[in-house]
């Protein structure tokens, strides 16, 4: 057996449990991801996907288990801005009076001084990030005037500007146009080559097959985890979705 070196894992979650006021949202969940891996997080609504993300970012506290990010605690991962979270479009107030530039600049806040006054390097990082998601024409556009795809790209740019080595993406493909989808998938390949680790939740089974090396099927706890080709079977999917046939799930809806 090979020895496990914690440093080799970007994400190491061991038997983690999360409960909200006594109501269990996630129990005994495990996950190990290495640099350059893309993992799909699949489960029903309420299966604990968002809770899993929240636990990894430290937005909720785990009641049991252990999380290591690049071999360190969640707290020091926060301090180092190791993890970037890209929210789903519904998760943010699109009417908030803020421009693309300002949202992406928020990716730099963690490393700025207390007044969050941007340095030359911050400005450059934001410029580069916005260019990579092809929004240079929309620098000062309020996010309320963007399409769903453009808004998604804005938050991706924020994650890029943050220079995080781990990206957590909540439904990155929901409600986006073809162009954005293509751009996101190109970025995924670049991220992979840069050694970043990606964990993304999705309802879309086709995207899992297309992008994910690994898949984590959850329903309050891990149903199955492993290489997509081995684990992403109709039987496992049916179990994950509480007995609903995959034929239904793979229908024209997805």
């Amino acid at each position: 057996m090979e020895t496990i070196n914690y440093q080799n894992f970007r994400i190491e979650a061991e038997n983690i449990c999360v409960d909200y006021n006594g109501k269990v949202a996630l129990y005994d969940a495990n996950l190990r991801l290495q640099p350059g891996q893309i993992c799909g997080l699949v489960g029903m609504n309420g299966a604990g996907k968002t809770t899993f993300f929240n636990a990894l970012t430290g937005f909720v506290n785990i009641s049991k288990g252990k999380i290591r990010i690049n071999g360190e605690s969640v707290r020091s991962a926060q301090k180092d801005q190791t993890i970037a979270y890209v929210p789903q479009n519904e998760g943010i107030d699109s009417q908030f009076p803020i421009s693309v530039w300002d949202v992406v600049m928020m990716g730099r806040y963690g490393s700025m001084n207390i007044f969050r006054s941007p340095r030359e390097s911050d400005v450059q990082a934001v410029k580069d990030a916005i260019e990579r998601v092809d929004l240079t024409d929309h620098l000062s556009t309020p996010i309320g005037n963007l399409s769903g795809g453009q808004r998604k790209r804005t938050f991706l740019a924020r994650a890029i500007a943050q220079r995080a080595s781990i990206l957590l993406l909540d439904e990155p493909f929901s409600g986006v146009d073809i162009r954005t989808e293509k751009l996101i998938s190109e970025l995924f390949i670049q991220f992979k080559n840069e050694g970043k680790t990606i964990l993304l939740s999705t309802h879309d089974m086709i995207h899992v097959r297309e992008f994910c090396d690994l898949v984590l099927l959850i329903n309050k706890t891990v149903v199955a985890y492993g290489e997509t080709s081995e684990v992403f079977t109709p039987e496992n999917i049916t179990t994950t979705f509480g007995g609903i046939s995959p034929d239904f799930l793979f229908g024209p809806e997805s």
């Binding site: 430290g58 928020m106 963690g110 007044f115």
Partner: peptide, 22 residues
Amino acid sequence: SIFRKDLMLYCFDPRHAKTVGI
């Protein structure tokens, strides 16, 4: 005035604020 931008971030996206150690 001091925490102007942090408070804006807190109102807009507290999860991101937490994630980057604010």
